[in-house]
Design a protein around this nucleic acid. Structure first.
Lengths: 112, 112
DNA sequence: GTCTTGTGGTCTATCAATGAGTCATGGTTA
DNA sequence: TAACCATGACTCATTGATAGACCACAAGAC
């Protein structure tokens, strides 16, 4: 009776989500942390941590990333320093892009 | 009466979140998609897409990953094929880990 | 220049996610 | 082996996120 999710997700994002959950779990076990301990450290409930490790699509990304960070799962860059500089670089890069996508696009297929 | 957020987040996860949002935006502009179009394609509202691009911590990770996938932002592996096989490998790896973390850990600092 | 339109911002009602609690199972240690 | 405890799964109340509208502004087209 648990109304499923009702939000369509591609297989790609589902796989990525499950992988992230597994990596979190792996990191947690490597640090020999119980779900209770890790949840407390991340400031979330144990139930939420379980959903994260299961790859639930409904968890808030803030909670997931926080847990991942604590477990040592590399989000983009392993080090905070590198991540910060990459973010700064990306910010500058964004400034060079057009601010808006003009509507000439309908069935755009420039994916590749 | 907007009770702020009240969920602490590390700088690392905040940066990762903002970077992800920027990458989504970059991918969207590269594909010349409007926020309205992308939101519709991802099955979310435009307001949510805006929060995602802004790096809001409260968005559901399912929505964020879905949008990222559509925009071509590599989550772990660029290709779905590679991601799936990595997930399969990770699953096997998990089977070899201890199922539970015994509580001998209190102030575990094996981070390093 | 004007006009069109994509975007950011805000607000509110609705509904799903979260936290807290419980129970059953099974892994882990003594 | 037995006892303990970490885990998974579930329910329920409450909080928070989401959708959908609005407006104002700015960017690009003409």
């Amino acid at each position: 009776m648990v109304k499923p999710i009702s939000r369509p997700s591609s297989q790609y994002s589902l796989n990525a989500l499950e992988l992230l959950g597994q990596l979190v779990r792996e990191g947690r076990l490597n640090k020999v942390l119980t779900t209770t301990d890790l949840a407390a450290r991340a400031g979330i409930s144990r139930a939420l941590l379980q959903r994260i490790e299961r790859g639930d699509t409904g968890c808030s990304i803030g909670a997931v990333f926080e847990v991942a960070a604590i477990c040592g799962v590399p989000l983009f860059e392993q080090e905070q320093r590198q991540l910060a500089s990459r973010l700064a670089f990306q910010r500058e890069k964004m400034a060079l892009l057009p601010k808006a996508a003009r509507s000439r696009a309908k069935g755009v297929k420039d994916d590749f």
